[in-house]
Amino acid sequence: MIAETPNGPAQQRAIQAERLQARADVPDSAGGRRVDQVAAELFPEHSRSRLGDWLKAGALRLDGRTVKPSERVLGGEVLVLDVELAPVGHDAPEAIDLDILHEDAACLVLNKPPGLTVHPGAGQSSGTLVNALLHREPALAMLPRAGLVHRLDKDTSGALVVARTLAAHTALTAALARRELHRQYIAVVQGVVIAGDSIDAPIGRHPRDRLRKAVREDGRPATTHYRVRERWRDHSLLELRLETGRTHQIRVHLAHIGFPIVGDPLYGGGLKLPRGASEPVREALRGWRRQALHAERLAFASPDGGQAVDVLAPPPADLSALVDVLRAG
């Protein structure tokens, strides 16, 4: 574990514009295909949508010409990429400590504390994880979302992966889409869960509340696998694996099967004090103010040479204390 502290000179460095330059010959066998499709194969470190934008802007040219992404190649042409990356956003760097669990040339994995918002947004332009990342590595300003590949809710703690280069961001985003970035969570839920299972239920917008999601027949496919790690008198500790990554997926799915996460303000149904619970349990539940959900593990192949990364994020002290109280009964 590495605790990041204000690094002074690093924050003072001006962000240097980065120029990407590359050249590739279009094979004769590609004749008749769209140029953006061919470019995605010749420059696999960049997404097709990004290459399409560069084609439109003239930063990626076919035989020296600016072409539309839909133009068909003949085969035998030359694609030349020459683009100067500019900062993606205008968020300011801030000296906020980060708990770094893994770091290599392509990415880093951090343990996000509860209460830390990931992205600046309406009502909060500072004090976020993005601000902290920009302070640690100013060059992340060139990447979408400062290199973040996925997100966690403000009050969910745990492991997040951050790309350090544009190529790594493309690779990790693609791995996430292919379900090759494995995410494991733990959650304290209301009720005694008898056995593990899978929840396969589509998720979409809640019909009345814009802040919530809901299981809906017309929603997007969503699958969550869970198993019981511990059972107590009125609660359970679950281990969960995501097969898809819909917004609020675990929270919605567990509420849907009747085992909402303790403290969940949107899906938990309010404070529930079990009949006959001990005073320590009652006090712990009364004082709990967030969903008891933690992203415990991330496993994936790093874009830095394909090395296997398998990181465990220790749960925060408040969650560990809650588990100890419920375990003691």
Rank of each mutant, 00 (worst) to 15 (best):
Ser125Val: 10
Gly270Ile: 08
Ser70His: 12
Arg297Lys: 08
Pro87Ser: 11
Leu60Lys: 01
Gly115Lys: 03
Leu60Phe: 04
Lys154Gly: 06
Ser49His: 05
Leu254Met: 05
Pro221Tyr: 06
Ile96Thr: 02
Gly127Tyr: 05
Gly268Val: 08
Gly158Arg: 05
Arg216Leu: 05
Glu243Met: 12
Val26Pro: 01
Leu298Thr: 07
Ile100Glu: 12
Asp25His: 12
Asp209Phe: 00
Leu108Met: 13
Val80Ser: 10
Leu101Asn: 05
Asn111Cys: 13
Ala299Cys: 12
Glu296Asp: 01
Thr128His: 02
Tyr185Ala: 01
Phe259Gly: 01
Thr170Arg: 01
Leu81Ile: 06
Ala105Arg: 12
Cys107Phe: 01
Phe259Ser: 00
Asp36Asn: 13
Val26Asn: 03
Arg220Ala: 15
Val130Ala: 08
Ser320Asp: 13
Leu322Ala: 11
Asp97Gln: 15
Ile250Arg: 04
Leu110Thr: 04
Asp63Leu: 11
Ala171Asn: 08
Ile15Asp: 09
Val88Asn: 03
Val162Asn: 06
Gly64Asn: 04
His182Trp: 11
Gly115Asp: 01
Ala146Met: 10
Ile261Arg: 09
Val73Asn: 02
Asp318Gln: 11
Val26His: 04
Ser157Cys: 13
Ala132Asp: 08
Val130Gln: 03
Gly305Ser: 10
Pro69Cys: 09
Leu134Asp: 00
Pro144Asp: 09
Ala317Gln: 12
Leu81Gln: 03
His169Ala: 05
His46Tyr: 14
Val323Ala: 03
Arg179Lys: 15
Val192Arg: 13
Gln307Ile: 15
Ala168Met: 00
Ala321Asp: 00
Arg13Val: 08
His235Met: 03
Val38Gln: 08
Leu273Ser: 15
Leu42Ser: 08
Val189Gly: 04
Gly89Glu: 12
Leu101Tyr: 02
Arg164Cys: 12
Ile257Leu: 10
Glu18Val: 12
Ala168Arg: 04
Val149Cys: 09
Leu55Ile: 08
Phe43Ile: 07
Val162Ala: 07
Thr165Ser: 11
